[in-house]
Amino acid sequence: MSAFAWVLVDGVSVQTVSAFDRGLSYGDGLFETIRFVDGVAPLWSRHMQRLHESGERLRLPVPDAALLLREACVVAKGLDQAVVRITVTRGLGERGYAPPTLPQPTRIVAAFAAPAMAGDAYVHGICLRWCETRLARQPRLAGMKHLNRLEQVLARAEWSDPSITDGLQCDTDGNVIAATMANLFAVIDGVLVTPSVEHSGVAGVARAEILANRAAAHVGDISRKDLLRADEVFLSSSVRGILPVQAVDDTVYVPGPVTRALQRHWRGLGFPMEQA
């Protein structure tokens, strides 16, 4: 049975794309994973902003946001809690890396049942580990949610322990950047901080929402030593929300007032979540 509730490829209900699509051949494309609650995506505008800005950087035409919303609502119909993945590739092209002069993008809109935003993870926190796989520093691609996720795939393959929810990755200079599936925040010396994603990592929409809500937050380099002395650590994800971190390997943390306040903010946006 398909894992999808429904899939539309260029508006047609199929689950296949051409073997010659540049998204498959070269990872030439972008994607967004968007949480819907009762047919509404509270962070829709932030997702569309990132998609269009990334499209401009890649010189990749991006479909109209209104069209994407209509198709997202179609595939998510019948799901009270859905995650809609929108994928845009450069479409078909001749063999070789040179992009077509007039690309005809492929758009894929698929819906999945969303993970529950409740339980001990939101109250007591999750356990993380350090990953050996580093993130390359490439400012021309940094921040975008492009289709090449091999660094995250290799990092996620480093463990199979079900008690470990995610892993933290550093860049090749040793700076802490993010978890494999989420952005990282910490409270250090009373200041909310998050790593810069100017050279590697993804500029998450949940991260953008937090930074808009917390104007005094600091964006910059964070070392592993910095994280060791943090008072609070949490992850942000547009799909899973605000997840307190209970431990990173042997370093233990306790969810604090900043984490709890942002969890309340998240509920206020319209995302259901266990009370904390």
Rank of each mutant, 00 (worst) to 15 (best):
R85F: 02
Q81K: 10
G27N: 10
H47A: 04
G78R: 07
E32S: 04
V83Y: 07
A76T: 03
V62H: 01
L24Y: 09
D80R: 15
G91Y: 05
L60D: 05
M48T: 03
E71A: 04
V74Y: 01
I86Q: 00
Q15H: 14
Q15W: 09
W44K: 04
E32N: 01
L58G: 00
L30I: 05
P61S: 11
T89P: 10
S25R: 05
E53R: 12
G29N: 10
V83G: 00
T33P: 06
D21F: 00
V88K: 03
F31A: 02
V12L: 14
Q49H: 13
D38M: 06
D10Q: 12
G39K: 08
R50Q: 15
A82M: 09
E56K: 13
V83R: 05
V37S: 09
E71C: 08
V14P: 03
R90V: 13
E56V: 13
V74H: 10
R50V: 10
I86R: 07
S18Q: 10
W44M: 11
L60Y: 09
V74R: 07
G39Q: 09
F20G: 07
T33F: 00
E32P: 01
E53W: 05
R22W: 10
V40L: 13
V37H: 12
L79F: 06
T89W: 02
M48Y: 06
L24S: 07
G39N: 08
I34K: 02
S54F: 04
V62G: 09
V40P: 12
E71Q: 14
I34Y: 05
V84F: 07
D64Y: 02
S13T: 13
V88L: 06
